[in-house]
Every structure is written in C-alpha cells, then in structure tokens.
Design a protein around this nucleic acid. Structure first.
Lengths: 120, 120
DNA sequence: CCAACACTTAAGTATCTACTTGACCGTCGC
DNA sequence: GCGACGGTCAAGTAGATACTTAAGTGTTGG
C-alpha cells in the first residue's frame, strides 16, 4: 500500500466512479474521517474503505490514522497529472485546427477573395 | 449509438484505459481511419472497434463513414468537461489551503515566536 | 472495566470489461 | 465480376470491479 505515485491509469480509473468522485469532491472542500465520508453515501462502510483504497493507490488521496479515526485529504498533485494529460492532448488538437485554418485561408487565396480575416 | 453527450462517468472511464488513451493521443494529432488507429496496437481490429465505441459513447471521439473507411476525430468538448471538473476540485482545495494559511498566520501571533516567516 | 465507536479484514457474489475467434457485408480496383 | 480491403456483428471467456455480510482489532469515554 506504499504505491502512491500517480499514474494516468490509476487516476482516471479512480475518477471514473461517481462514488469516488463524490468522495474527492467532499475532500476537496475539507479533510474528513472515513465515517464522515461514508455518511452521505448509501453503501456500507466496508465499501467506502475499498473506494478509499483505490483513491489512495491512485495518489488522489492521502490519509493518516490518529487514535481510532483515519483522516483523509486530497493530494492535488495527482489531479494535476490527469489535468495535464488532458490539457496537452487538447492543445495538440487545437494547434492542429489552427494550422488547418491557416492552410485553408491560403488555399482560398489563389483568387484573393474580398472577405479575408487576417490578424497579422 | 446516438448517445454522444459527454458525462464525467463516461469520459473518465474511457480515459482509464491505456489503449484508448493511445487512440485519443493519435487522434489529437490528426484524424485517422479505424485500421490506422489499430496499426500500432497489438490487438485485433474487433477489439479496436469496441474501444472506439466506448470513445464515441463518451463523446471523446466522433467518426463518419465514407465508402468503406470510417474516419475518426477527437471532439475536444468532452475533454473539456473532464478538465473542468478536475480544475474545479483543485481550485476548491487550493483556495482552502490559502484560507488555512491565513488563519495559521493569525493564530500564530498571540505569542510572536522568534522564527516566524512572515511576508506582509 | 466495558460498551460503544471507528475502522479493518475476509470471503463470497453479481456484474462488467477487455479481449478473442470466426462469420459476415458492402466497396474498390482491376 | 471477383478478390482483396476495411469494417461490422455475435458469441464466448478470463479476470477485474463494486458491492455485500460477518467477524474481527484497537481506542475512547464513562
């Protein structure tokens, strides 16, 4: 269970479940004990623990036990890993659309049309 | 198969698989046919089709068939939905840390200790 | 001390997932 | 026309997932 470095596989899989997203949402507002996390969810405490384990292994959540209560908090670094992957692919795609736009604007100019929207 | 409005569940689940991420990555560089998508992957074409279906239902990818080839492209809107959810939770968490920082800075002042790193 | 509390572990189960193979269908090029 | 191409459909399977219940373990308050 010392497997806390975030991987894309782990983070996305963890976020794919609505219960786990609810838990992350709750924890992104403030740290909470396991039973606090479980309170609004209509599943057994054991099930919440299993979700928590998934979240911890993905690196999205860290927790520590003091006395008999375990306090959980989000680790935003893992969120960042997922966010970055998405942003990168999106940038790639949109950059490509831009280039495509340029090419279209050029190939349209053999006969320079009147309505050309050029910025530079 | 007309179920193309992106949901968090669908998008995150789709991105949780490395094969599907590879497909999205490939498509974020340029549109491609199904067999082009399949070429670098060591799985059957039928399996690629099944992944493609998941990607389409999640809204991450659109495709259209012309003649006998189906051309696939990314729809960045779905990526945006996932990106936004993550960014929102992260903002929530970091905003909270800021507030916490302020409070700590304040409650630390009753007895101004020697080694205090104060900026303002 | 002891009962309530806050988990923790183990085992079992129904459903889902990521594949496979093999048959099939429409389209393109010669 | 007909064979190869590009894709589609259907069925089956091994392993993962999201739970459940039931029986623990260690902690705390009275």
């Amino acid at each position: 269970m010392l497997n806390h470095q975030p991987t894309l596989d782990g983070v996305f899989r963890a976020l794919a479940d609505p219960t786990r997203r609810a838990m992350v949402d709750r924890l992104s507002r403030a740290p909470a004990a396991v039973s606090e996390l479980a309170a609004p969810l209509s599943i057994s405490l054991a099930a919440v623990m299993q979700h928590l384990q998934v979240l911890e292994q993905s690196g999205l959540v860290r927790s520590e036990k003091v006395g008999r209560t375990r306090t959980c908090r989000v680790d935003s670094a893992a969120l960042g890993v997922a966010e970055k992957w998405i942003a990168d692919r999106r940038a790639l795609w949109e950059r490509r659309l831009d280039r495509l736009g340029e090419v279209l604007a050029e190939t349209a100019s053999p006969r320079p049309a009147g309505r050309k929207k050029k910025k530079s």
